[in-house]
Design a protein around this nucleic acid. Structure first.
Lengths: 202, 202
DNA sequence: GGACTGACAGATTTCAATATCTGTCAGTCC
DNA sequence: GGACTGACAGATATTGAAATCTGTCAGTCC
């Protein structure tokens, strides 16, 4: 045996097998075959097939999370940061879906297999939105007395542009216009400064 | 033969068969059996099984459309009307999903079988939103230079609370809080009056 | 002695034969 | 003669036997 079998090597092989066969056909035996070991060996590193799939999925999501951080280096206003952040997330997911639909579908299935994974993913991203809104409150660009709720509301209001259930609509040629309209509405909502006389009378 | 076989009788029988067996198991033969006729007779009134299912689905959606109109009789401000309208739609869909999950799932499948049906349904409802926003612009409660786009944006931003893909989240005990937060954000966004100096400087 | 193997039991999936369904139409019945 | 029937061809769905997969563990090998 040339090298010891590591968890990382198993994860890389598993990702490759998932790419090649898809989530329905990929088996632990396939992974072991790709590594030239018996499938029993894979079970020394991951207790179940589900745990192995979950580990691969977390690795994939972590790459997205890290990539999204780069928006914070751009030195924009809070409104601009929020728009750029949402656009970057949308672009990344849309491109993945349009360019590699099978791979996107594969990870979509993997993410939906556990309740922990979407919670982990959404929790991380809503936390980033909260950071952006918090900065906007600081500069008086945004008004809210409950940043976590506002962050969740922004996330929920933009569901159409990040939730994989809506991926089929991302190929629509006018989807970017719909995205711009929703983001403008949401950003205006965060800006709204609730002066009692601001509405209702001419 | 007691009475002539009518399209309406076939639709009623089809709905009953769909309730009993679900969309996967309901057959044209079942419908004919329920009516005490041969399945060939059903084909004298509807050209295909798909057309029959579509007619049943349209009938069901039309009842929702008509019911939603009642919000316009309430004599509220535009913001209140919009909130009441969205709440009513959400309540109706949520109750249907929570109280009769199988029936909801049945119609969910039926709606997704044709591209025309969701278009018809969404088109009608976004038209109602546009009427509400238009009234709000009239009274200067809302500000927008493009009512149809704003109406579509309101629809898209509230997708989580009416799109059946999110139905599983409607049982969550905090879903009403999430709804309130999104609707507040959206209504504030429509109110935002874009005074250039309103944001950005202390 | 610790990483790895491979045979095994029970669970799951595949596949092909069988049954049912959709849509048609020539013929029946009032 | 027009509404309805029922037998039919091709398409689709069901079923159960056979194959494969998951997870375990006693045994092998360095």
């Amino acid at each position: 045996m040339a090298e010891a079998l590591t968890g990382e090597a198993i994860l890389a092989a598993t990702e490759e097998v998932l790419r090649r066969y898809g989530p329905a056909k990929a088996t632990v035996v396939d992974v072991a075959k790709a590594l030239g070991v018996s499938h029993g060996s894979v079970y020394r590193h991951f207790p179940t097939k589900a745990a192995l799939r979950e580990a691969v999925t977390r690795r994939w999501l972590d790459a997205i999370h890290e990539d999204m951080e780069s928006v914070f280096d751009l030195d924009l206003t809070a409104a601009e940061t929020l728009r750029a952040w949402l656009q970057k997330l949308f672009d990344r997911k849309r491109r993945s879906h349009v360019d590699e639909p099978e791979l996107f579908a594969t990870f979509r299935v993997l993410v939906s297999e556990s309740k922990n994974i979407p919670e982990y993913h959404v929790g991380y991203l809503v936390g980033q939105v909260a950071r952006i809104i918090s900065a906007g409150v600081e500069t008086q660009e945004f008004v809210t007395d409950d940043v976590p709720t506002a962050a969740q509301a922004v996330w929920d209001a933009t569901e159409k542009f990040h939730h994989p259930a809506h991926a089929q609509e991302w190929g629509n040629p006018h989807i970017q216009d719909a995205f711009d309209a929703v983001v403008s509405l949401v950003v205006d909502g965060l800006r709204y400064n609730r002066i009692p006389s601001a509405a209702g009378d001419a």
